[in-house]
Amino acid sequence: MDDGETEVTLTVNGINVTRRVEPRMLLSDFLRHELGLTGTHVGCEHGVCGACTVTLDGRSARSCLTLAVMADGMEVETIEGQGTPENLSRIQKAFHDHHGLQCGFCTPGMIMAIADLLKHHALETDEQIREGLSGNICRCTGYVNIIKAVRELAKERGPLT
């Protein structure tokens, strides 16, 4: 049957998922509407604000600029794969401790971007931390407390090996 749809198979937060989707369907819409993972937010649809950030095979990506079919065969991690209200992930806990969020809308994307930063970026100076965070816009916090949280996480992690 040619309904114009394409089959896509990917891993989302460790779970295998197969769906038929329109080729134009954005990964953000796929996660939010097909899978009900509404923790990934859409703020600008242009890849500018970073609210929709997820990781694809461990590297941060804009799910609003990625088609679901492009993620075929990949491992997608979303905020739902981080931690739960009862058991926050380390990054989530650092945000909680340092008041790194207010309205919470940019937070999932920010956390997913930081998950990548902690794995792949030096983050030894505030300059590097600010640079690393500059792809994610937060309108509430002025970044001050987010930087504090990342400072703590980077210190805990130590230098990249």
């Binding site: 979303t78 981080q82 931690g83 739960t84 909680h96 401790d97 919470g104 937070t107 956390i111």
Partner: peptide, 21 residues
């Protein structure tokens, strides 16, 4: 005092209007 609303907002379990079905 750490915020009580954080737990849902940090974990993607908050509910904004566009999350509603």
């Amino acid at each position: 005092i750490k915020r009580t609303e954080d737990l849902r907002l940090l974990t993607g379990t908050g509910e904004y209007v566009d999350d509603m079905q």
